[in-house]
Design a protein around this nucleic acid. Structure first.
Lengths: 195, 195
DNA sequence: TCTTGCCCTGAACACCCGTTCAGTTACAAA
DNA sequence: TTTGTAACTGAACGGGTGTTCAGGGCAAGA
């Protein structure tokens, strides 16, 4: 037996990550075994260790990759303009990004407690950095005198919680298009900050 | 050995539930073993089965009790008045209820996927019932002509997500009192629905 | 054609899992 | 004081866990 036909590192690696992502999102990190992940890919459990040092690192690298992608995509979508424009761009970006990545978002929010302390600190820092981009927009709106928010920090968290909530109910085959959803959430956000 | 001094069913039962609640919230249902729960209470694992038929039922009964308490407390706090008054009462109630029950809320949102299908359906129905109380308030505000919300269902979910978000950051020893938090969230809610 | 080394298998390691149950003890009622 | 039983222990059940590793097959380069 051993190596089967046509298998390659460049193919197997991503397939393992995709399987882990799907299974972690569906059942939770702790409830998924390395053997289940391997079975999903069509391997024996031992083969996974050619691609990850251990299970913990598999989770961490998925979360890290997600956060890195989130931050860089956000930075390129929410760039210039006045505070209101940037807020609108942020809302649109957040909705669009989160709609297409249900599994990643689920894991990023649910599996924080299964990270080792160092890994948690790394992910938490990235999460705070993302939060701060919205925080900065709200602060800018305050100094421009166009927003009416009593506590920018609390408002930031409230808005992000509201926007991220779409992942719990949005389905592509529902009666609302992504643009509809964006419009509804933008109007709520806009009014909530007093524009 | 066997039965140790001064131990009683009326004491041990709640202690087991409290330990399970705490551990499930901290590490997740799948990551916590019956032996860990028993150790926390000072028992052997076998003794737990005098109080729960199995681990799944322990999780379910915690979630069920939480949802029942949520619904009955909500019903008694959000009763009469016009739509705006009831919305304000709902926001205050939700904030106050969720601030003091971080562990319960955490489990109620995170461990849904670890419920058996029948148990999930039961909890999900209660969750929908709670959502519907807010939905009914928004509908009432629409027919009264005082709210401006394009899609009450989406707005309901967005508001609940926003309000529930406090559990991820609120700490009793922070710089904001519960009343401050309530006020901030009420103002955001109020403006978001156009009052 | 031969050889090198990547990729994978399959077995093994020590340990933990939920759950059951015969047996033991402390207490309440008689 | 005796007895009945609720409450609990400790061991056992079959099975699953993450991880390691010697060895074998396949493909590409010499």
């Amino acid at each position: 037996m051993a190596r089967t036909q046509g298998s390659h590192s460049e193919i197997t690696g991503p397939r393992i990550r995709a399987a882990a992502l799907k299974l972690f999102a569906a059942h939770g990190y702790a409830a998924v075994s390395m053997r289940q992940i391997a079975r999903e890919v069509g391997l024996q459990a031992g083969a996974l260790y050619n691609y990850t040092p251990d299970k913990q690192d598999l989770l961490f690298s998925l979360m890290k990759a997600h956060m890195d992608e989130l931050l860089s995509a956000c930075a390129s979508h929410v760039t210039s303009g006045d505070a209101t424009t940037r807020l609108r761009n942020f809302v649109d970006f957040h909705i669009q990004f989160h709609m297409g990545r249900a599994d990643e978002i689920f894991i990023a929010y649910m599996e924080l407690r299964n990270l080792s302390p160092e890994n948690f600190e790394t992910i938490e820092a990235l999460r705070r950095a993302y939060e701060d981009t919205l925080g900065a927009i709200l602060e800018a709106g305050l100094t421009e005198g166009v927003f009416d928010v009593p506590d920018p920090k609390v408002t930031t968290r409230a808005l992000i919680a509201m926007l991220t909530g779409i992942t719990t109910w949005y389905r592509p085959d529902g009666y609302l298009s992504p643009a509809d959803v964006s419009e509804i959430y933008w109007n709520m956000t806009r009014k909530a900050v007093g524009v």
